[in-house]
Computed example of a mutant assay.
Amino acid sequence: MRAITYAPPTQQHTKEYAMPGCPFPTRRRPTSAIPTVPAHWTLPAHPTSARKARQAIAEALPSDCLPELADDLGLLVSELVTNAIRYGTRLVDDDIIELVLWPADGHYWLAVSDPGTTLPTFTSPTPDACGGRGLLLVDAVSTTWAVVPRRVCGKSVVAGIRLRCD
């Protein structure tokens, strides 16, 4: 997966204008050059956070998104947050899960970060097993996904789903 970065153009037409109550001129960029600001949430490492994450994602999506995209993102965030809580935290009060959602490059990108160093692994659950399918679902629903180490501690699991909005 390639990294997504935003580099502003080196030459951009700007104009100065006076803002009421502001003692100095302000430069304005055309809005088309400003990337979408990612939505960001911090959640406690608690089992109820998976539900809160699904609600947050649903509320952050634009109203013209197809229900299938919202459903896929809801499933994806539920599995990633659940895995982060089960395998990436110590289930203590000070552990948190970070969740970021942003559209870029024709995808909705979702990053779920936790303080743990345990990497996700595929399992082969038996048909009657109650768990063990989370990463299989992530792999099936997302277009691409990867584990990215964080600078300070922990990791982020980043997944992308092709953008399908009306």
Score class of each variant (00 low, 15 high):
L91D: 12
D128H: 09
A146M: 09
Q11L: 14
I96T: 15
Y6M: 06
I57Y: 02
V147E: 09
Y87P: 14
A159P: 07
G134S: 05
C130R: 06
E79N: 10
S113I: 03
V152M: 09
C65T: 10
P30Y: 00
V157S: 03
R51E: 11
D139P: 02
R27E: 06
R54I: 08
A70E: 12
R27L: 13
G21Q: 10
V157I: 15
G132W: 01
C165N: 08
L110R: 01
E98M: 07
G106D: 10
A84N: 13
L61C: 01
A58S: 07
P25M: 04
V100N: 05
D95N: 13
D166P: 12
T31M: 08
P9M: 06
L137E: 04
A146Y: 03
H46K: 10
R162F: 02
G131F: 01
W41M: 03
E79L: 05
L99K: 10
A140L: 02
S32N: 14
A70Q: 14
H40R: 09
N83Y: 04
V81E: 13
M1E: 06
K155D: 01
R151Q: 12
R90H: 14
F122W: 08
T117W: 01
P8R: 09
D114F: 05
A56T: 08
A140W: 00
I85T: 15
S142Y: 02
T144Q: 05
G160N: 06
G154P: 12
I96Q: 15
D166L: 07
T10R: 14
P125L: 04
L66S: 11
R162D: 11
A45L: 08
P127V: 06
R151D: 14
L76K: 00
R150N: 15
P47R: 10
P62A: 04
P44T: 07
I4L: 14
E68M: 04
C65H: 03
V152P: 00
C65Q: 01
Q12T: 15
G106A: 06
L66D: 13
T89G: 10
I85E: 13
V77K: 04
A146D: 14
R164Q: 11
T126K: 11
L163K: 13
G74F: 01
P44D: 10
T143L: 01
I97H: 09
A159Y: 07
E79Q: 15
W41Q: 06
A129E: 02
T42G: 00
P115N: 11
T82H: 12
S156W: 01
T42M: 07
L43Q: 07
D114K: 05
R29E: 05
D94Q: 15
A33M: 09
C65K: 00
R162H: 08
I34G: 01
G160I: 05
L76Y: 02
A39M: 08
C130Q: 11
G160T: 07
